[in-house]
Every structure is written in structure tokens, then in C-alpha cells.
Simulated assay, not measured.
Amino acid sequence: MTRDSGVRAERLVTSGTFSLDGETFDVDNNVWLVGDDDEVLIVDAAHDAPAIAAAVAGRRVTAIVCTHGHDDHIGAAPALADATGAPVLLHPADRELWDTVHPGRKPDGELRDGQPLLVAGVEARVLHTPGHTWGACSLHVPFLDAVFSGDTLFHGGPGATGRSYSDHPTILASIRRRLLTLPGGTVVHTGHGPDTTIAAERPNVPTV
């Protein structure tokens, strides 16, 4: 498949709240649609299922990938799955977080490290990158020279680890071993805020 195939990453920003450890914050989330004019894979179903479905615009949805189990990244997943018929995929280490948001509704499948996901003839590979949560995953799409990092890596450095189900040394190890080893020109499509690149973030990730 050539670069003019139409495979691309589309960003939709949705707004809502994030709640954990007894606190609630207003947040804007990046929802990513990866694919072409016929089918897409959704990375993080945040806040607004109707808005995401409208962005899908009738294309076949191959999967709804949850980069982690925080409520702002999975809140719209069941409704979006019902609307599109696509399976919701989550790493099993984040099942406890999922169950607090969607009791009685299981994810449809599990993410595992190294798992390939196909969309529009292009392979996306799951990278288990724990630290922000125990089940946090990133999605590497070599064809697009891109990685979808969820809340693991942002413009400016690592994601937050000050709350339950997180650990700072673990996220640093994940980033250094799984993300910073990608080519420097790899674009990092984040869960919140602007894009960055692997090369730009290497100086922002301490070794200890």
C-alpha cells in the first residue's frame, strides 16, 4: 500500500470530565480515527459517542481501542460500540478501572503487548506501556510514522502518575524502553493536547 492510499490519522477533540480518587476535573480529550475512506480504528472513545459516530461518517469501525481505563478515555465506549458494532479492546490490567465506570458491561476483547491490529490494510501494533495505569497501552503505526500514546507521553514529557493505579518509575521505564526507541521522526499523537515527536521528547524523559 502506497502513501497515497488515503490512510491517515484524524483528530476529534471532545470535552467532559475526569474523575479519580474523589476529585473531578474538566478535560478536553483527543479521539483518534485511524484509517481511510472506508474503515477506521478508533483510539479512545472519550465523552461524546454521537460526536465520534458523526466523525466516523458511516465508515466501518474495526475496533475501539482504549489506551487505558480512566473514565475520560472509556466513557463513550459502550455506546459507540452499540452504534458501530465494533469491539471495545482494553488491556486486562485496567479491568478494575473499567468496572468502576461500566459495571456489568465487559470489554469485548483484550489488548496484549505486540498484538497486531489491522485497519485499511495497515498494521497497528500494541505496545504495553504501563505507568500512567497498569494496563496503559500505546499504538504504533509504522505506515504513518506515528504512535498513539494515550496519556503515557505528552508534548513536554511523561504523563501523570500521582494517582491510584500509577507509578512514576514504571512510566519512565515504559517510555524509555518502548517509545523512545522508535525512530526520532515518529509523530506522537497524544491523549490530550498537541502532537510532538519522539526526538523532541527524548530530552524530557529522565533516566531515573
Rank of each mutant, 00 (worst) to 15 (best):
E201P: 08
D48F: 08
T197K: 04
R8Y: 11
G22D: 08
E110R: 01
D38E: 15
L20T: 14
G22E: 07
D38P: 05
L179Q: 11
G185W: 15
M1L: 13
T161N: 02
I52A: 10
K106G: 09
I52E: 10
T14C: 07
G135Y: 02
A83I: 10
T24C: 03
D195A: 09
L172C: 07
L118T: 15
R125F: 00
T161H: 06
A199D: 13
D94W: 15
R105F: 09
A173K: 09
P203Q: 08
D195S: 08
A57L: 02
T196Y: 00
V147H: 02
D4Y: 14
H73T: 10
G159R: 11
Y165I: 12
E110T: 01
S19F: 08
E96Q: 14
R11D: 01
A200M: 01
V34W: 14
I175Y: 04
H91Q: 06
L153F: 15
V205E: 02
A77G: 09
D151N: 13
L127A: 05
D71T: 11
L127H: 05
A77W: 00
G114Y: 13
V119D: 13
D4M: 10
N204H: 13
R177W: 00
L90V: 05
A136N: 12
P87V: 11
H132I: 00
E10L: 08
S138G: 13
T190V: 04
P142G: 10
L153A: 10
I52G: 11
G159S: 08
F148Y: 06
A81T: 03
H189M: 01
S15Q: 11
L41G: 00
A55D: 11
A124G: 14
R8C: 10
F154W: 01
C66A: 15
Q115H: 09
A77E: 00
T84W: 13
P130E: 06
R176C: 10
F148C: 14
A173C: 07
L153R: 10
H47I: 02
T14F: 01
H128S: 04
Y165T: 12
D145G: 15
E201L: 04
T133F: 07
L97P: 11
E39Y: 02
N30H: 08
R8Q: 13
L127R: 06
H192M: 10
P158W: 03
A51D: 09
D36Q: 07
A76Q: 04
R112N: 01
D108S: 13
P103Q: 12
L182S: 12
P142Q: 06
T100D: 13
P92N: 05
D28K: 03
A81M: 02
R176K: 06
W98D: 14
A9F: 06
D26R: 12
D99L: 06
P206E: 10
R202M: 07
E123M: 07
A46G: 03
T161L: 00
V147R: 01
H155P: 05
L89V: 08
D82E: 15
R95W: 03
V122D: 00
R60P: 02
S166Y: 06
D99S: 07
E96D: 15
R112E: 07
L172E: 11
D151R: 06
R163E: 14
A120K: 02
